[in-house]
Simulated assay, not measured.
Amino acid sequence: MRKTLMLASAFALLATTLSAVAATDEKLASQAHVKMPEAREIALKTFPGKIVKEELEKEKGGSGLRYSFDIAANGVTREIGVDAKDGKVLENSIDNGKD
């Protein structure tokens, strides 16, 4: 019974956390003039390959709102940052794995 209660509490906490993350993601997305599909195209033109990770985040540089893509090709993973307000490439570097 105690394990069931602990598990239920853990799932409730996880659901609350995921809901808060989703609300934050929606808020950030509503501030972006460039939408995710367009940002993906820009990133893949910068470094063709397979997108293995993508996110919209607040970060210094440009407008302060950027898409970050980890793109893998030929054994190399690069991080491509695209400004979410004007579509400019803000970063094109070898991924350091500290994400």
Rank of each mutant, 00 (worst) to 15 (best):
E41G: 14
I71T: 04
R78H: 14
E54H: 13
T77V: 15
S68F: 10
K35S: 06
S19K: 15
N74Q: 12
V52N: 10
V52F: 13
I80P: 06
L44P: 13
E55H: 14
S30K: 13
E41P: 13
K27A: 14
L56S: 01
M36H: 15
S63W: 03
V52E: 08
V34A: 00
L56M: 04
R78P: 09
D25P: 07
N74Y: 11
A23N: 02
D70L: 14
A43G: 10
G81Q: 09
K50N: 10
H33G: 00
E26Y: 09
A39N: 07
A22G: 00
E54R: 12
A32I: 10
V76T: 14
A39L: 09
E54A: 12
E57H: 05
G64N: 09
G61E: 07
N74M: 05
E55Y: 07
A29G: 05
V76H: 11
K53V: 10
K58Q: 08
E55F: 01
I51G: 03
G75I: 06
F69W: 05
D25N: 07
T46H: 13
A39H: 10
V76E: 14
K45D: 06
E41S: 15
P48D: 08
K85W: 06
A29W: 06
K85T: 12
A23M: 10
V34W: 02
L28T: 08
G81H: 00
A72R: 15
V82C: 04
S30C: 05
F69A: 04
L28A: 02
I51F: 12
P37R: 12
S30A: 10
S19P: 08
E59W: 12
Q31H: 04
G62A: 03
D70W: 10
K50F: 07
D25R: 11
G75N: 07
D25H: 09
D25I: 02
R66V: 01
R78M: 15
A73M: 01
K60W: 13
V76W: 00
Y67L: 02
S68G: 09
I42Y: 07
K45H: 07
A22C: 00
G61D: 06
E79G: 12
A72H: 14
D70Y: 02
A39W: 04
R66P: 00
K58R: 15
E41F: 07
T24C: 03
T24L: 06
R78E: 12
G61K: 05
E38R: 13
D86Y: 01
V76F: 08
E59S: 05
I42L: 08
A32L: 04
P48S: 08
V21E: 00
Q31R: 08
A84T: 00
D25C: 02
A32R: 02
G62M: 01
A84I: 07
M36D: 15
T77L: 02
G49M: 07
T46C: 11
K45T: 11
E57F: 06
A43T: 14
H33L: 14
Y67V: 01
L44C: 12
L28N: 05
M36K: 15
L56G: 01
A22K: 13
R78T: 08
M36G: 06
D83F: 01
L28S: 05
E38K: 14
F69C: 08
G61Q: 06
E55I: 09
E54I: 09
P37L: 04
E41D: 15
A39K: 10
A72L: 12
P37N: 05
G49F: 08
A43N: 06
R66Q: 04
E79Q: 13
G75L: 04
G75T: 07
G64L: 05
P37V: 10
I80N: 08
